[in-house]
Simulated scan of single mutants.
Amino acid sequence: MEHVDVAVIGGGQSGLAAAHSLQTQGLEPVVLEASGQPAGAWPRYYDSLTLFSPARYSSLPGMPFGGDPDRYPHRDEVAAYLLRYADRLDADIRTRTRVREVCAADGGFTLGLEGGRRLSARAVVAASGTFGRPHRPELPGLDEFTGTVLHAADYRSPEPFAGQRVVVVGAGNSAVQIAAELGERARVTLSSRHPVRFARQHTLGRDLHWWLTRTGLDTLPVGRFLRTPPAQLVIDDGRYRAAVVAGAPDRRPVFRRVDGAKVTWADGSREVVDMILLATGYRPDLGYLAPLGALDERGQPRHREGVSITHPGLAYVGLEWQRSLSSNSLRGVGRDAARITRRLAAHLASS
């Protein structure tokens, strides 16, 4: 069996940031990425996706994003940036290597890989993100819906849905952005339990992220106090609020139930719908840790600011609200990676 210092599970932004930090601690990480390239989920997001943070606030440690620092990079730019970063990192990155399980063994861990291979590691960083585990809420009758049910993870562009009646479930950034672009070609309702909460992208000529950085709110360690993450704000330059006000999409409370092809709205009215798109987020994709007992009954990691409270050699990078509001973003994973790798290095030095 091959033995390594630290196995980093996931080769996207979180895994690459973790590998960089581990190298600065004198450790030799092996990055295990299930897909064919170290770019995380970025190549698989919907076609029109752009960052809500400017390029100057969207880079990993040691390598600026490049280009106009005030632009908002497109999905493909982010994927290309991550590939350049991985190449420059010069780490042992193994693509098409899916981890099936992690088990405790002799003070460290044994990783079972797809195909039957096994690997032992003194420490493990779980950086597999959330894209592999889309959240599908329990909505009455949804399983019997005779139209199309699609999660935002599988949505690419609005063209296939032109002229259709579409309901987008959700109230976050992706829900609003997808609903607005669908609203240009289809009749769309944005359906959510709570009203959409907009945040201005620019205030007094400065991007929101400038203010978050200047005030220190971006790094405030609030994650430890949050039992339930707060409702997401939709960062808006004015376009999305205007689209909702114009009714493309219109916004309604979440429907009561689905019967065949029809949805029943809160006011009792019913109508035929062609597609229900679930922009309802994701959950940590950490099923491979189940054999360790490192997860709670909901599949959530048991940790404190990214450090496992069940296994001293296990840590996480890229969890939502892991430590701060930026913990699962390009601008935040580097800070969290540096913190957890210092803890891991100290643990390995003493073991």
Rank of each mutant, 00 (worst) to 15 (best):
A7H: 12
G11S: 13
G11M: 13
G12N: 06
S14K: 05
A17T: 02
A19L: 05
L32M: 10
S35G: 14
G36V: 09
G36D: 13
G40H: 04
Y46T: 07
S53P: 06
S53C: 11
R56A: 09
G62Q: 02
G67S: 08
P69A: 09
R71Q: 13
Y72T: 12
P73F: 01
E77V: 02
D87Q: 13
A91G: 04
T95Q: 10
A104N: 03
D106L: 07
G107K: 02
F109H: 07
G116F: 12
R117D: 15
R117G: 15
R117L: 12
S120L: 00
A123C: 04
P137W: 10
E138P: 00
P140V: 08
L142W: 12
T146G: 12
G147I: 07
G147V: 06
L150F: 10
L150I: 14
A152T: 11
Y155F: 10
P160Q: 08
F161E: 04
V168N: 11
V169S: 10
G172K: 07
G172W: 05
G172I: 03
E181D: 15
G183Q: 15
A186C: 09
V188P: 10
T189K: 14
T189V: 15
T189A: 14
L190G: 01
R193A: 14
P195T: 14
P195H: 14
F198H: 13
R200S: 14
Q201A: 15
T213W: 02
R214H: 11
L217I: 02
L217V: 03
D218T: 00
L220F: 14
G223N: 05
F225D: 03
L226R: 03
G238S: 12
R239V: 10
Y240P: 00
V244S: 11
R257L: 13
K262I: 01
V263K: 03
A266R: 14
A266V: 14
G268R: 12
R270A: 15
E271T: 07
I276V: 15
I276W: 06
P284K: 01
L289Q: 02
P291Q: 01
L292N: 07
D296P: 01
E297K: 04
Q300K: 00
E305D: 12
I309M: 01
G313Q: 11
Y316M: 04
W321T: 09
Q322N: 04
S329G: 09
R331W: 07
D336C: 09
A337F: 06
A337L: 04
I340L: 10
T341N: 02
A346D: 08
A346T: 09
L348D: 05
